[in-house]
Design a protein around this nucleic acid. Structure first.
Length: 502
RNA sequence: CGGGGCAUGGCGCAGUUUGGUAGCGCGCUUCGUUCGGGUCGAAGAGGUCGUCGGUUCAAAUCCGGCUGCCCCGACCA
């Protein structure tokens, strides 16, 4: 691609809307443009990088025996009503009505659609197991998009869905995805940590989240250096310390959804004085949809944390409802837990029969008996991954893409006296199958160098009178700044060999 | 949804306190100059000051409604 034809203006100053470095650089280098809050266009370089990410994901999913499919962005409300999520999920679900008055939803996720597909296609245990995946746009009307692509409302996900006859089959596919996801992140160049997680709005029985550790993350993790325990704060357990008997009480209205009905119960939570409430634990205990604080109402249910001693008031239930904090003791080994911030880039769920039971997705087993299909769902936030990669791979001058995901592999710069040679080199490189971004613009050297640093392609090739006088092409590695002059007739080999090493 | 902030040319900002009809830097166009780290000079183009209404002889500036965007919290892949 010639830069003279690229609709890709780089900007020198940081746009005022950016708060995190990765977002700033993606905007300045011309990878993305914001269209509305949490909604983005991907310019050519951004789209290329996304395609690289998606190619890696396809390879790894195909290697698991996955079949790529594509499910729609718009779903009939009936599917979501059947699973119950139409009623359970509030304003995050994009709802619309078509010209004939039919209710539709925008794809917040695709469990319902896949379950419906399975209901139509799967009859017998002989057709199981199955693995289908797709890469598709999602809409979640997040109450507060932030940090660019890290938390947007419209985003792209890789979703994989497994269908099995039993829990053992699910466990195998779950483990296969667990391993495959690590391979995907390793190939993309993003360090991640898998942690125990809440199942959240997906439902199901078990979940792990793949976390990119960064101070700009909005999840808090608890890690144990003693035994390796690691969990999202939402589910993290810890040894309750001895307390002096001081307690605190907090009152909530718990909103429950039973079928299409909404119910409310007033709950008072009692905690040790120094504890913090873990609302996720409380929500699960109550089987509630959400909580909102209240005060001075007649309590329907008294919940006391299992770390409380000396509570003499009413008790309806004792359970773990406290949030683990930095320095709390690990449940299994007693070492102090530490907290870190992280961005969730992927998650995997054992859905079990949560969707197949509610939506009537069954198969006939070997004994001729209808059974609910056992499902798993596995997702990677593709656009969020791009944002994390920009966050992870940059320096003061700009982005520094790993070869595997760089929108182009080399950045060819033609300076004074080098244009003619550069043009023929551009053709040679492309014929050799190398992705080249060619800066053929009439700009001063400084502009080209700075843009090249900002865009951050792995190799920079400079052709000029000076380089030719020195013996050929200047080759500069973006990552470590190492430069060398390579003779023209050796360049193709040099570049190919270097790329192959990465 | 609660709290805070912002909205002036493509981008970043000043001007608003104290009302008098819009300015700076970058970018863009043309010419010259320079040519390996965002050269230098000259001449240009480009703005219903988010929007609707009010006050006033006069509103970017004062008042009110609305919209959009950002940040903190709640929430969330």
């Amino acid at each position: 691609m010639k830069m003279s034809r690229l609709m890709n203006e780089t900007v020198r100053e940081a746009p005022s809307v950016t708060e995190v470095k990765g977002h700033e650089l993606l905007l300045r280098a011309g990878f993305v443009r914001q269209v509305a809050a949490g909604v983005f266009s991907y310019l050519h370089l951004g789209q290329r990088a996304l395609q690289k990410l998606e190619a890696i994901m396809r390879q790894e999913m195909d290697a698991l025996g996955g079949q790529e499919i594509k499910m729609p962005l718009v779903h009939p409300a009936a599917l979501w009503q059947a699973s119950g999520r139409w009623y359970e999920i509030d304003a995050e679900l994009g709802r619309l009505v078509d010209r004939n008055g039919r209710s539709l939803t925008l794809a917040l996720s695709h469990e319902e659609t896949l379950a419906e597909l399975a209901r139509q296609e799967i009859r017998s245990y002989r057709q199981l197991p199955q693995l289908a995946y797709h890469i598709q746009t999602k809409w979640r009307d997040d109450p507060r998009p932030r940090a660019g692509l890290i938390r947007s409302r419209e985003f792209t996900m890789l979703d994989s869905y497994s269908l099995d006859a039993d829990d053992a089959g699910l466990a195998a596919q779950y483990q296969a995805h667990y391993d495959a996801y690590f391979r995907i992140f390793a190939r993309c160049g993003l360090p991640v940590l898998a942690v125990e997680a809440d199942v959240g709005m997906m439902g199901g029985t078990q979940a792990d989240e793949f976390m990119y550790l960064t101070p700009i993350g909005e999840d808090t993790l608890l890690l144990c250096d003693g035994c390796g325990y690691r969990a999202n704060r939402q589910v993290a357990t810890f040894r309750k310390p001895e307390t002096g008997g001081d307690t605190q009480a907090m009152q909530f209205v718990a909103e429950l959804v039973v079928g299409e009905e909404k119910l409310e119960r007033v709950v008072t939570a009692v905690l040790a004085h120094h504890s913090q409430l873990n609302e996720t634990k409380l929500v699960h205990l109550l089987d509630a949809q959400r909580l909102r604080p209240t005060a001075d109402q007649a309590t329907d249910l008294w919940l006391v944390d299992d770390g409380v001693t000396g509570w003499s008031g009413q008790v309806d239930k004792v359970a773990d409802i406290a949030a683990a904090q930095d320095g709390d003791a690990c449940t299994s080994c007693g070492q102090p837990l530490r907290t870190v911030r992280a961005v969730e880039v992927a998650n995997i769920f054992k859905l079990g029969t949560r969707y197949s039971r509610t939506m009537g997705v069954t198969f006939v087993d070997a004994h001729g008996v209808a059974q609910p299909i056992v499902m798993g769902s596995y997702g990677i936030g593709v656009t969020r991954l791009l944002a994390c990669l920009a966050e992870q791979h940059h320096d003061a001058a700009g982005l520094v893409w790993p070869v595997a995901i760089a929108p182009y592999q080399v950045h060819l710069l033609a300076l004074r006296g080098g244009l003619e040679t550069a043009v023929s080199l551009y053709n040679d490189l492309q014929q050799a199958g190398i992705d080249v971004l060619f800066d053929d613009r009439e700009e001063r050297p400084g502009v080209k160098f700075n843009d090249a640093d900002l865009i951050g392609l792995p190799l920079r090739l400079t052709l000029s009178q000076r380089s030719l006088a020195a013996g050929g092409v200047e080759v500069k590695i973006r990552g470590d700044g190492e430069t060398a002059v390579v003779p023209l007739n050796d360049l193709l080999n040099h570049v190919t060999a270097w790329l192959a090493e990465q």
